[in-house]
Amino acid sequence: KFTDLFEKMVPMAVQQSMSTYNQRKADTVNRLVGTMREATNLCNGVLASLNLPAALEDLSGDSIPQSIADKARAIVQQGGLQSIEQLIRDLPELLTRNREILDESLKMLDDEESTDSELRSKFNQRWNRTPSGDLYKPLRAEGGNFRSVLDKAVQADQVVRERYNTHCEMIALLCKPEAELSAALPSANPAKTLQGSEVVSVLRSQLSKLEEVKKEREGLEAEIKAVTFDMSTCFLTALAQDGAINEEALSVSQLDQLYGSYTQRVQASLRAQEGLLGNVQASHQEFSSLKQSNSEANDREEVLKKLASAHDSYVEITSNLKEGTKFYNDLTEILLKFQNKCSDIVFARKTERDELLKELQQS
């Protein structure tokens, strides 16, 4: 039942190439997924600004359009306003916990260094060990990186809070029971004449194609994230054959093989959206010219637009908050490792200091 503990051990060059490869891979995945999400957000924004699909469903002018009712239900099911308010309330605590671990770690280094300097000034050249300050430079540099990452996170928290403040009123309205939501919607005289018109069915089919394009992206994102490949054998072989690893060339060509087709499919999805959005905007112009626009209809349309974009913002804020919570929790683990490194080296330095002190006092 022997399992070789050193089975996963690889030469340092391979270890470093693996970590650079993983960084490149993470960047590639983030770029592809980010591009699709941005395109979907753009699409949702354009549709919301055109009050689509609500305008097509709202031909009666008094009940809640189906898409708005669906959006309201979706938000309520995800916990509504309370769930994002709770996540927002938790952020400061997560931030403080991380800052405390970092500050404690750096304080350990500072305290040991000040004792080392005191003894150096007392014993002068007889205190012949390396100054703590020199030894702690790399750890302090690492601490500096953590500090700047935390500062950026604080800015991100602020963006999320502002986004929440901008949209919480409308999100709250979406979360209200149907009767209240319907009462808040200014009613407008019915635009029945448009019910059977050709442009309505053209717009409907364009919108369903857009939904399909967006739906496909979910599958594409899952596929992209599911890609795995073990580069270690490739790096080991290169090291064995050439005595060195051309990490960039090997990684880039491998990543291209793994993600090249996905990049094309993402581009195709973007182009499809662009074309469809163009058609939707053209059809919408025709649709709104047919619709008798009057002040009540415009007021109603404004509220419907705000409700639609409130839903999109809710989805975005929720994903931002999940990302933020994960960021802080992941960072805590990394900082705990950093803290261990600091306490290990300080412990070693203290032991060394006590021995040196004893020698000097005896001699």
Binding site: Q23, V149, A153, A156, V159, I334, K341
Partner: peptide
């Protein structure tokens, strides 16, 4: 994404 990446902070630098 909104929050900074932790990828490069995860690399455990070997203490000389």
């Amino acid at each position: 994404s909104l929050y900074p990446s932790l990828e490069d902070l995860k690399v455990d630098k070997v203490m000389k």
